[in-house]
Nucleic acid binder design. Sequence first.
DNA 1: ATGTAAAATGTAAGCGCTTACATTCAAGTG
DNA 2: CACTTGAATGTAAGCGCTTACATTTTACAT
Lengths: 347, 347
Amino acid sequence: MPHGQENMGSSVPTLEDVAARSGVSTATVSRCLNTPSQVSATTRERVMRAVSDLGYAPNFGARALAAKRTNTFGAIIPTMENAIFARGLQAFQDELGENGVTLLVASSSYSPQQEEEQIRSLVARGADALLLIGQDRTPKTYAFLDKRKIPYVVAWVFDRTNTRPSIGFDNRQAMKALADEVLEMGHRHLGVITAEREGNDRARGRFEGICDAARDHGINPDSLAVEETTYAIDNGAQAFARLMACTPRPTAVLCGNDVFAAGALMMARKMGLRVPEDVSITGFDDIELAEIVTPALTTVHVPHREMGRRAAQKLLSLRAGDDPGPSIELATTIQWRESLGPAPARN
Amino acid sequence: MPHGQENMGSSVPTLEDVAARSGVSTATVSRCLNTPSQVSATTRERVMRAVSDLGYAPNFGARALAAKRTNTFGAIIPTMENAIFARGLQAFQDELGENGVTLLVASSSYSPQQEEEQIRSLVARGADALLLIGQDRTPKTYAFLDKRKIPYVVAWVFDRTNTRPSIGFDNRQAMKALADEVLEMGHRHLGVITAEREGNDRARGRFEGICDAARDHGINPDSLAVEETTYAIDNGAQAFARLMACTPRPTAVLCGNDVFAAGALMMARKMGLRVPEDVSITGFDDIELAEIVTPALTTVHVPHREMGRRAAQKLLSLRAGDDPGPSIELATTIQWRESLGPAPARN
DNA sequence: ATGTAAAATGTAAGCGCTTACATTCAAGTG
DNA sequence: CACTTGAATGTAAGCGCTTACATTTTACAT
């Protein structure tokens, strides 16, 4: 293409086309787009007209390549299928949006290996910073992040023993608090539905919390009826059915999350069991679902929105070069509803 | 940096670093990564070792810039907060994954303007093709897509009058079928909870379907009690409460989606109304939620997974340069559960 | 050995953008 | 009016990669 001649035809307009059409250099056009104050009002106007006439949109890759900064953050969450992360992520996104950064979301299907791939992919795409869920990942992954100097924050957990910037809550303690309540209500035979604990520190923490509470109440954690399964309502239902077949039959089933609990509830109904009269069921997370089901779930309320918002703030400040500062612990509370009741009288 | 000298220090390794370390040219390294068959086994091995030693990962922007192809598709959905699109999107993603393409998801919050921005952003990021929900968008947006020659497919709707490649179902007819059933059961006073119809052809279609059915049963559509609100369980609940305050009070409430219906159900319970004895409630979509709530929702089942899968296939084939072919219509069915019953005897 | 075609590799020109640095211009000063 | 100065603009060097084309190597037939 002869220099200075505007790109004709239907192909994608470039900075150069805009420059040609408005009679300035590409540098000026670039400045118009990025630092408008450095351009005189008259030329700016002319350039902007050319931009809209041409329907020009900057090429992201080229921009990232040249500027080494994308104004894009990434988040890798274990799943999009369930609403567990939706609310927190929304808050995260909103906060970022207000600061002019775009969010790219990927899901790992709870697979550490897939997560690593996703991390690489987001980084290759130029993510300036990352939101990660939980601490469990290979040293290699962390090494990669460190080597690349990508700021990240680990959310949904708070672990005082760890030095990584994190923002979340103590899963173990939170679940213990709920389990304590269950035990205080006289339940002696507990069933547990947990997500796969391998590679999932949150699930492990929650399970440990139940064990802690059991021990405190003179119950051997080994006597717990435990079902481990993957994340889906129906799996919760199946696990509940298996639990109900145990001897002695649990009078309360503690679920690692609300999704399992919803499944359990569904299965209880199907089996003709009344909740909480015949069996109590509890959840964890307090997602929307918890309030919708019948009976409504007694569960652990997690401040998702605040977590998302503050994760965004921390990441923004990390990118700006600020010191990580201490990890942030958020408090959980027990959300009392209807699915937990006293242990049925012995029969 | 002197030519041929490996990049020391901790900065991000580039193709050139890999080339230097393995003693070949950048071209060979590139071929190793993209078309390994063109490289001899021995060099390939040497190069791959260097790649992993260095922890090299290609820079996406640079690659896109040079190759003009990203193997990335984009999807813009109205919302991530609710699970409406989750299942379809998951199927879409799975199908793409099998074909080596990555999915980038953005959400528009049901705002056509935001949607346009998202489209531009995804295109700037190099999306090879796009999945769009519904037909309602400005001509400008379509013009942009056409000019850029970005293949796209419109999902969640099927409109025989339109020439854009689409894959979905006839919202109007599907809702009419359900409304017919409701009317057959003797209901004469209907309430409707619909999403905002402006800029949302699916919501409009569903509403029109109800009107069609009403007319067929000798009911003036203007006599329908209609509540229009935005997408959230709680909004559904509030709308239901308002509907129950109408005179005459509707004996059946048709909701534009399952989320509204879940909210309505919740509010009915709160108001002490039995469903379906006192009032019937129906949904649309048949998402997981529909089966979980009590009573379970009678709703319109939409083949989300198939829609997602076939949308992916069509997009893949469009990118390959194939002809769009005809739009695909999927069938919906009525999913009978418990929330719809005969109209209560007149009191 | 010698020639030849195919396979393997190298060279270098961009892809579209940003930005350090150089240049030009306008508006005051003394 | 020459001179300084800061604002506006231009020039051009990359950013990290792919790929057309050129060159070298290899394998094999003669």
